[in-house]
């Protein structure tokens, strides 16, 4: 059986590597992209089974990319998990957990990522 392919998109390269290592250790194949535009390009080249998408990124943020994916018939079925470092409400930003929950994303994880929560969400969305 072929491995499930997960795309991780975040402008923090160390975070991408950390999450990729976690996922690879569980047997997933992982693609890496470092901003919204690169993420979009990567999805065009190879359709992922799931996308882990940071919200605060240059060029195209995670909300915009998520909305575009969900508006497109070809990609709307790909599960999207949004990531944010703004776990608690910070009034000056729209990148808080509550804002994320209001998008069309399939789930939402606040950084620092709890590994167990990540497995639960990934397994649930891929099952």
């Amino acid at each position: 059986m072929s491995k499930k392919y997960i795309l991780v998109v975040d402008d923090d390269p160390d975070l991408v590597e950390t999450v990729a290592m976690m996922l690879e250790s569980k047997g997933f194949e992982v693609g890496r992209a470092y901003d919204g535009v690169e993420g979009e390009e990567s999805i065009k080249q190879r359709r992922p089974d799931l996308i882990i998408l940071d919200v605060m990124m240059p060029r195209k943020d995670g909300y915009v990319l998520c909305a575009e994916l969900k508006a497109n018939e070809e990609t709307r079925d790909i599960p999207v998990v949004l990531l944010t470092a703004v776990g608690e409400a910070v009034p000056t930003t729209r990148y808080s957990h509550a804002d994320g929950m209001s998008t069309e994303a399939d789930d939402y994880i606040a950084k620092p990522i709890d590994t167990e929560t990540l497995w639960e969400i990934v397994n649930s969305l891929l099952s």
Partner: peptide, 11 residues
């Protein structure tokens, strides 16, 4: 590129 807000770091 959006500046990371000081409040977020402070949190």
């Amino acid at each position: 590129k959006e500046k990371i807000y000081k409040e977020i770091i402070a949190s």
